[in-house]
Amino acid sequence: MDTSNQQLKQMEQEEQELRFTSFTNDTALELGLLLVEEARQTGKCITVDITRAGHRLFLHAMEGTSAENEDWIRRKNNTANHFGCSSWYIACRLRSEGTTMEEKYGLPLADYVGAGGAFPLIVTGEGQIGTVTVSGLPDQEDHDLLISALRRFILR
């Protein structure tokens, strides 16, 4: 199996593993603060967004980020919501196929982006209820930071 197929399989596994049994506004606050702390501990600057059914429950922009990060978040969220999986999974899958979202699905780059950082919030028995998204780092780093924090939060 080549590296890109292994990476896609790993991301599919993450989406199966990193599910919540319940998700409240307080859960969003705790998770958002954990993401900010994880970024601080590694010396990174990110913007964090947690949205449930179109309702923003948490937003924090660390020093060193800009309004542009919020636009990236909007586009990453659109991607994760449209496809029901992480924005990085879609980006990697399309790259392995040698195509783009615009070419394959007709989705405008102004509203959708194949980039790392958005992950579906999935509650067992409910399905996808929203997204948790970070922006400010290179694609793989946005994804890895998010997965690391989700793993710590869910598997505690």
Score class of each variant (00 low, 15 high):
T47C: 03
A28V: 04
C45H: 13
W88Q: 13
R95I: 00
A110E: 15
H82I: 02
D26P: 00
A39W: 06
T100E: 02
T27R: 05
F153P: 07
F153N: 06
D26L: 12
A61F: 00
L59F: 08
A61W: 00
G54T: 07
R56W: 00
G106F: 08
H55K: 13
P138F: 04
N77Y: 00
A28G: 08
N78R: 09
K44Y: 04
G114C: 06
S87L: 05
H55G: 00
I90W: 00
C92E: 15
C45V: 04
G64R: 08
V123H: 03
L57Y: 09
R93A: 12
V132L: 10
T51L: 09
C85L: 06
E126T: 01
P108L: 11
A80P: 06
Y105E: 15
L29Y: 14
L34R: 06
M62G: 13
A61S: 15
I50G: 01
G136I: 04
R52K: 13
D142R: 11
D142Q: 13
L137V: 06
T79V: 10
T99C: 11
T100R: 14
Q140T: 08
L34P: 01
S135F: 04
G64I: 09
K44A: 11
S135G: 12
E102P: 00
D144K: 08
S135E: 04
D49F: 00
N77P: 01
D111Q: 15
L150I: 01
I50Y: 02
F119Q: 05
T79D: 12
G32P: 10
S87V: 09
S148C: 10
L33S: 12
T65G: 09
I73N: 09
E38S: 12
G125D: 05
R40A: 13
R75A: 03
E30G: 07
L34V: 01
G64F: 12
R52L: 12
Q140Y: 11
I73D: 07
F58T: 07
A28F: 07
A80R: 04
E103A: 14
W72P: 01
L150W: 10
L137R: 10
Y89R: 13
F153V: 05
L29R: 15
Y105L: 11
D139G: 15
G114R: 02
K104I: 01
